[in-house]
């Protein structure tokens, strides 16, 4: 508890000493940790491997951007986007869970869903088509726009803490305890009186709502939305890989995963990118993923915790 409070205090104070570039890296760390934590609810705790979470980010971002064009502030559009993402999450979840799609089949369903979203967004001119949406910069905080990158830093940090707080609450309640059992054996859960369909759906709704909130942040930090970027498989991979590396189904796993992967991704992206090797950061991800699967199958966080507790005993 004290460690958590201390960490938050440090993160709050950090922008005072960080360079502009470091601030943008931290924004990405927090933002991806937030999305990873959102995924963690359904993918980590409940064990339902959604590989299409980018779609919820995209739906949330597009909703807020389109509402903004019609004069609605993104501070409201954000929740409208989250709500729409949650509705879609509920529909996809219902389709998948009601008809018993597990493992790879659920992965395929979620990928297909995100791809359909991407193709729709690319071809419907009313939402910008293949060009996407561009947001005029006003610099007005009431319109979720800031001159100072440090504002985005604090918003991204708040989002990460929000998702982690929600996950911590879920983890302690009946809901969260049920999810960890659903991940292990759904049939046994049913025999013990657990309404598996209901709890998996709830997890999906919470998760897609949070991811949908993130869409607004994405849109109003980049001032643009491209179908390929927000609905595409690469973003879904970015979301999934952090909790897997850090420890899926643990509270701090997604955050640790983001602290490891985001700087690594950024550094390798700019390093290899300069020499014309675009996408080389994916090779780094791949190598790391293989290493984690081989040596730390539970992820980095459970391993770290074991190390620390062993040292405390000694």
């Amino acid at each position: 508890m004290w460690a958590a409070a201390l960490a938050v205090a440090v993160l709050l104070a950090l922008p005072a000493v960080l360079s502009g570039y470091a601030v943008t890296i931290f924004i990405l760390i927090f933002f991806y940790a937030f999305l990873a934590q959102a995924w963690n609810v359904v993918g980590g705790y409940a064990g339902q491997l959604s590989a299409g979470h980018a779609a919820f980010v995209g739906v949330g971002g597009y909703t807020a951007a389109l509402l903004f064009e019609r004069g609605v502030t993104p501070w409201i559009g954000m929740f409208a986007g989250g709500a729409l993402a949650a509705v879609l999450g509920a529909i996809i979840g219902y389709l998948g869970f009601r008809f018993g799609l597990r493992g790879f089949y659920f992965v395929l369903l979620t990928v297909a869903f995100a791809e359909i979203c991407r193709i729709l967004a690319s071809n419907v001119e009313a939402v910008g088509g293949a060009v996407g949406l561009y947001i005029t910069f006003t610099g007005n905080p009431r319109q979720f726009q800031f001159q100072d990158q440090r504002a985005y830093y604090y918003i991204a940090l708040a989002l990460m803490l929000l998702a982690t707080g929600v996950t911590a609450l879920i983890e302690r309640r009946r809901f969260g305890i049920y999810l960890t059992a659903i991940r292990e054996d759904e049939t046994a859960c049913e025999a013990l009186g657990v309404d598996v369909l209901k709890y998996k759906l709830l997890a999906m709704i919470v998760s897609s709502f949070l991811a949908g909130l993130g869409g607004t942040f994405y849109a109003f930090q980049n001032f643009s939305l491209q179908p390929g970027a927000v609905f595409g498989i690469p973003l879904s991979v970015e979301i999934v890989i952090r909790p897997i590396i850090g420890g899926a189904g643990t509270l701090l796993g997604p955050i640790l995963g983001s602290f490891i992967l985001t700087p690594l991704g950024e550094v390798s992206r700019s390093y290899f990118g300069q020499s014309g090797l675009h996408g080389a950061h994916l090779i780094v991800y791949g190598v790391l993923l293989v290493a984690v699967v081989l040596f730390l199958p539970q992820g980095a966080y459970p391993y770290l915790r074991k190390l620390l507790s062993r040292r405390n005993i000694a």
């Binding site: 960890t180 292990e184 046994a188």
Partner: peptide
Amino acid sequence: FPRLTVVRNVMI
């Protein structure tokens, strides 16, 4: 539930 503790198993 192999990865849950025995008491967690019964808590479900």
